[in-house]
Write a protein that binds this DNA or RNA. Sequence first.
DNA 1: CTGTTAGCGCGTTCAG
DNA 2: CTGAACGCGCTAACAG
Lengths: 333, 333
Amino acid sequence: MSVTIKDIAKAAGVSPGTVSRVLANKAEFFSAKTARKVRSVAQELGYRKNTAAAELVTRQSHDLAVIVNTTKTNFANHIIEGIQETAFPAGLNVIMLYAGDTNSEQQRRALNTVIERSVRGILLLSLELDPENLTLLQSTQIPYCFLSISFQGPQSPFITSDDWQVGYQATKYLLAQGHRQIGLAAVDTQTSITGKLRVAGYQQALREAGVASSPHWIHPGDYSYAAGQAAMQSYGRQPEVSAVLAGSDMAAIGVMNQARMLGLTVPSDLSVMSIDGTELCDIVQPQITSLTQSFYDMGVAGVQHLLAKDTPTVQTYTPIQVIERDSVMKRIP
Amino acid sequence: MSVTIKDIAKAAGVSPGTVSRVLANKAEFFSAKTARKVRSVAQELGYRKNTAAAELVTRQSHDLAVIVNTTKTNFANHIIEGIQETAFPAGLNVIMLYAGDTNSEQQRRALNTVIERSVRGILLLSLELDPENLTLLQSTQIPYCFLSISFQGPQSPFITSDDWQVGYQATKYLLAQGHRQIGLAAVDTQTSITGKLRVAGYQQALREAGVASSPHWIHPGDYSYAAGQAAMQSYGRQPEVSAVLAGSDMAAIGVMNQARMLGLTVPSDLSVMSIDGTELCDIVQPQITSLTQSFYDMGVAGVQHLLAKDTPTVQTYTPIQVIERDSVMKRIP
DNA sequence: CTGTTAGCGCGTTCAG
DNA sequence: CTGAACGCGCTAACAG
């Protein structure tokens, strides 16, 4: 069928072994002359390397797999960019697979696809794995790392923001602006540890400020636009809170739009702050003050972690910072 | 190293051939009893299929490759969703690769990666390929299809919106709302045929309405937010046009925000319409009236095209429609 | 229904 | 520096 190294060996009058060495650029294990010859013949014949054959014998692929969920938020691009730009110079190809958010079967298929290809490493983007799928992942020798998500147990390496600090710092900022009644909207307090940590940080900040927080201030959700809307709907036309911290940029926009529908003006009637800090913050009106995460860095760190020879179960945190824009108003008591 | 079918053959007391048949679910070429035995042993030993070996002999992968560019717009998700949901039931795994927008080297690497794996098919998302990379792609036997982009020549299959109609229909709509001076912003009139067709459709609609259009009404760009801003900046504080058609949702938001900065209110001072119609249209204020494309359908059609036995060089168009929201005001002459 | 055999295309010995 | 030979793990004929 397709042309193999044998074909080009014959055509070039050398042995397949030599062709292999030339094409793989094995140091100076061949003369410049034969190299030229071989390469030109290969070119001419339209030779295409068979990766399957190569991987079969070397048991090493040059691929890095990224498994992403069909997330309702939009920061994945930034992480992927960081991954891409770190992997590329290292000679790694990045292949991405989607795994449904809630679809265990699809998760399994994505995992199997990359495991059976014995990729060089696996990066999982804000993906909550079923126990059995986690076991599947761990049962392989393939290095992996979770990104933008954290866990309780020490068994899995991950790189993310320190979510307790996320809740804490954002709330501190709002407090510093004079707010006392502060809502927390559209963070997932049920299944994800991420949400739980954010709540804990939020509550601690309130406690330190001597604010007796109310459970009514918290409206959990899945970080989506709709969750933000729903939360604001609950706060109502005359909200008990003067500021709302939303679980994502999209959620914050949901909060703001719903507030507008309720006749409230942001930020004069209600301050809104988001967690994430993607470009969405800049394109809406008013621009959203955010607790900004270092998504790009997560991608970079993820690849570096996979590339590192020894892969201890690290749990790394990337920087966070408050970026002031126009959706939070200072409140003079 | 890892456990192979031989290992499990030995452990189960059968031959490797049988194991292979069972694991590949070759119809009823084995008894239920041995099947059970084999499967349980495989499970127990933690057997993991070696895809490289299987592909080496069958010369067929079950992977579909999607190559996307790091686009400044945001519709790719919808196309990918369509691809995913069509490929999945067909037993195909979707792997996605990024290829820089302008980076020929990165394009080549992405292409080579998937070609050397002899994937089942290649879908290219709004990707402008270098001539040499296009040649590379065409030199393989792998079926491919461009999505959300069109070409002049008949050599490559693509599925997209009819971009002439996009420009034409959108402009017709604006005309029907009573607008005469209509701007066209942030479409690429230089390199892409897409942009050229939209301009042509736009101009034809104007012509049919007896409007003598002015070149000043057109401000080309790369469909980005910044391009939208720049265009609006050019229109200025007292725009000659009463409505602007923007090349993408993001561009339209750029136009609207810049208009606001110039002291103009949308839609009372200036109407804005976008091309694409993604969820961005719903989350900004005012919500953007759009010429909406069928991105999901493009993905579906793309997979179906690849799956079809004979793959003629088809050029398919997916539906478009005007979705009215709040950014266009009827103008009473 | 099952065992046996023969490669798939490549990288890597080991001699020369 | 190069050729010959082997085998990676699996599937696809064949015979039984």
